[in-house]
Computed example of a mutant assay.
Amino acid sequence: MQWGMGSALETLCGQAYGAKQLHMLGVYMQRSWVILTVMCICLLPIYLFATPILRLFGQEEEIAVLAGKFSLYMIPQLFAYGFNFPIQKFLQAQSKVMTMAWVSAAALLLHIFLSWLLISQLGLGLPGAAASLNIAWWVVVLGQFAYIVMGYCPGAWTGFSWGAFRDLGAFAKLSVASAIMLCINLSGWEIMVFFGFNAAISVRISNELGAGRPRAAKFAVLVVVLSSALLGFLFMTLILVLKDVYALPFTNSTAVADVVSNLAVIFSLTLLLNSIQPVLTGVAVGAGWQSLVAYVNVGCYYVVGLPLGFLLGSYFDLGVQVRK
């Protein structure tokens, strides 16, 4: 949800950067902080009452209790998310990707060390794991913010501004539309490689439109769609060629491997389609079409997808084959 709401900045920051209105990038980032902090507070009861919620849905008591405790430990990370995504979009719009990469790499190394220290050496278990995650995420947030306030984003960051509290309604509307557009379309880690294309085309489209170059934006769309489709076709081919063996590294059960092999054709087609869909989502974000695409996605998923899946699964007994 926060990722989706934070993606509204891809449109606004990207277009502001392309239009040379650099001072608005900092205002937009702070405005997103306000909205996402409110969203974090709205989500807080889920963390506080995770155990009774899980019990309500029939979860086993031991799992519900442990998950509830871990949810309480992870509240700091919830708010770290709320600050992190706007900072990322702020830096991303200025193509300062390497900065984010270095900060993330440092946080990863710290996370590995803290996990070893707190879990393996001190035996703190779940509290240690939660502390490691919380610290690592806040290192990312503070590290990136330190880079910004130290003057490495001249013109884009001019300090805290009361302008962050203006036009919150319109900003929230775009953020919610972004969240709806993205949240119902994440189908797993197999399409993570194409989220890079999503981010790249979003920034490029917003920059080109902000600079008043629609033909360059169209050309960028053509290039990225063809590139992602080519990669998707490559992945699809690999799955079909390796359909009898690609499940073996993940399971020792021959029955499971056989079922996965039988699903290879459906799965490979899914990879091909999922190579293009994130790219088109990035185009929509860059162009500011979140509201339109949100309606399309809600219709496709809830009006077409879920009823069709229920029909094929319940009445035609196709089981897992209807998932995609």
Rank of each mutant, 00 (worst) to 15 (best):
residue 140 V to K: 09
residue 241 V to F: 04
residue 140 V to D: 06
residue 222 L to H: 06
residue 61 E to A: 07
residue 298 V to S: 05
residue 95 S to Y: 14
residue 61 E to C: 00
residue 315 Y to W: 15
residue 92 Q to R: 12
residue 201 I to L: 08
residue 179 A to L: 11
residue 31 R to F: 03
residue 25 L to K: 06
residue 43 L to M: 15
residue 120 S to W: 13
residue 227 S to N: 08
residue 227 S to I: 14
residue 287 A to H: 03
residue 48 L to M: 10
residue 128 G to E: 10
residue 245 V to E: 00
residue 69 K to R: 10
residue 265 V to P: 06
residue 244 D to S: 10
residue 317 D to G: 04
residue 9 L to Y: 07
residue 135 I to F: 04
residue 178 S to C: 14
residue 1 M to H: 13
residue 271 L to N: 12
residue 179 A to Y: 03
residue 301 Y to N: 12
residue 262 N to E: 12
residue 121 Q to D: 14
residue 80 A to W: 05
residue 236 M to A: 08
residue 300 C to G: 13
residue 304 V to R: 13
residue 196 G to Q: 11
residue 237 T to I: 04
residue 80 A to M: 08
residue 253 S to M: 01
residue 71 S to I: 02
residue 270 T to V: 04
residue 79 F to S: 04
residue 232 G to F: 13
residue 102 W to V: 02
residue 276 I to C: 13
residue 114 L to A: 14
residue 190 E to S: 07
residue 171 F to W: 03
residue 207 N to C: 05
residue 42 C to A: 14
residue 103 V to T: 07
residue 6 G to C: 10
residue 295 Y to V: 06
residue 208 E to G: 00
residue 212 G to I: 03
residue 299 G to L: 11
residue 298 V to H: 01
residue 10 E to T: 01
residue 322 V to N: 03
residue 176 V to Y: 02
residue 291 S to W: 07
residue 117 L to I: 06
residue 158 T to Q: 15
residue 157 W to C: 09
residue 12 L to E: 01
residue 307 P to T: 08
residue 215 R to V: 13
residue 306 L to R: 04
residue 35 I to V: 13
residue 292 L to C: 03
residue 87 I to D: 06
residue 31 R to G: 08
residue 115 S to P: 12
residue 159 G to L: 10
residue 257 A to Q: 00
residue 53 I to P: 09
residue 34 V to R: 01
residue 242 L to K: 13
residue 29 M to Y: 07
residue 27 V to H: 03
residue 41 I to T: 13
residue 15 Q to L: 07
residue 320 V to N: 04
residue 136 A to F: 06
residue 317 D to C: 05
residue 87 I to W: 02
residue 224 V to Y: 02
residue 248 L to V: 15
residue 113 F to W: 14
residue 322 V to I: 08
residue 209 L to P: 02
residue 297 N to M: 11
residue 142 L to V: 10
residue 259 V to R: 01
residue 260 V to T: 13
residue 268 S to H: 02
residue 182 L to I: 15
residue 76 P to M: 06
residue 263 L to D: 01
residue 324 K to A: 00
residue 205 I to G: 08
residue 70 F to V: 09
residue 266 I to D: 09
residue 106 A to S: 14
residue 266 I to K: 13
residue 203 V to W: 10
residue 160 F to N: 10
residue 31 R to N: 06
residue 210 G to L: 07
residue 265 V to R: 11
residue 247 A to N: 00
residue 174 L to H: 04
residue 303 V to F: 15
residue 306 L to V: 15
residue 290 Q to K: 06
residue 281 T to F: 01
residue 310 F to R: 10
residue 276 I to W: 15
residue 301 Y to I: 15
residue 306 L to W: 15
residue 89 K to H: 10
residue 72 L to S: 04
residue 225 V to N: 05
residue 215 R to D: 15
residue 310 F to D: 03
residue 139 V to H: 00
residue 208 E to R: 06
residue 177 A to R: 02
residue 189 W to G: 02
residue 259 V to P: 00
residue 111 H to N: 15
residue 302 Y to K: 07
residue 164 A to K: 02
residue 179 A to F: 03
